[in-house]
Design a protein around this nucleic acid. Structure first.
Lengths: 142, 142
DNA sequence: TCAACAGTTTGGAATCGTTCCAAACTAAAA
DNA sequence: TTTTAGTTTGGAACGATTCCAAACTGTTGA
């Protein structure tokens, strides 16, 4: 039999709270998605979230999923992780951390930010400021 | 008036040489592309190389560009740099180095490998081996 | 309370970069 | 040469994402 692990979702009020705090109008769809994204640290794709919303009985148009994901990212509720062309993940962990990326199956695994360290980043070109330093440790089945 | 800087391309024999060394049959198209990629350190997209080949009077089908770019990458003649979904660059610099990525205009700038250093990469999950550590320093116009 | 408006959602079409395909071609081996 | 295995081609197909204009809905303030 299939073991189904319970996913910790947010309560509606809590979700509304977060949206307001981020300056986003708490629409039905945004609240639903905020609830689904919940509290746990997750790496999810637009397609995946779309499917989940459907299963959870609160279908949201794919276009809205994309809009929302980008708005959430803008509002620092999510962080976008780019690992390959055509493979974009959204990470509910917005804290300081990096990732292992398994090229074989496209899996992402967190690396705690206090474990890894990047030293020697040169001064950015004139008129530019560092926004973020992304580290992707590409691993392969050995 | 427009100043046109001369791009250093490879001689045909030199290109053939490289291809043979990499175990690739030196076809007309591969030689042309190897010549265009030349010696200088460049960051180029498939689309861009396709255009360049056309301008240089040796048009190559886009499908061939993709094939070739991947074969060259496989053969370590190029390195693929992923910075955003749907934006894949090929780097003629296959040595140890990392990149600045300007989110505003999609530009890549090299960071010498001996300047930057990543410490504290945890042991990869069981059965996995580190293939490469990619660092992308995202910068924005300030 | 409700009208009005600005912001949001929607499905479907459009676009983008990339890959696939089967037929035509070509470098290298025999 | 001929043969053959590897390569190239244009166009169709693809998956992910964005665009669009019409319908809808939080929010504001009368």
């Amino acid at each position: 039999m299939k073991v189904s692990r319970k996913r910790k979702t947010l309560g509606a009020e809590e979700a509304v709270e977060r949206l307001r705090a981020a300056g986003l109008r708490p629409t039905r769809q945004r609240v639903a998605l905020a609830q689904l994204l919940g509290d746990a640290h997750r790496h999810i794709s637009a397609e995946g979230l779309h499917r989940e919303a459907g299963k959870a009985g609160m279908p949201v148009a794919l276009a809205t999923i994309y809009n929302t994901l980008h708005q959430f990212t803008e509002a620092k509720l999510l962080r976008e992780v780019v690992v390959g062309s055509g493979r974009s993940y959204f990470d509910t962990n917005t804290g300081d951390h990096q990732h292992f990326y398994c090229e074989d199956d496209g899996t992402l695994i967190d690396i705690e930010g206090n474990a890894i360290e990047v030293a020697g980043v040169p001064t950015p070109p004139k008129g530019m400021a560092v926004d973020r330093v992304d580290v992707v440790v590409r691993v392969k089945r050995s």
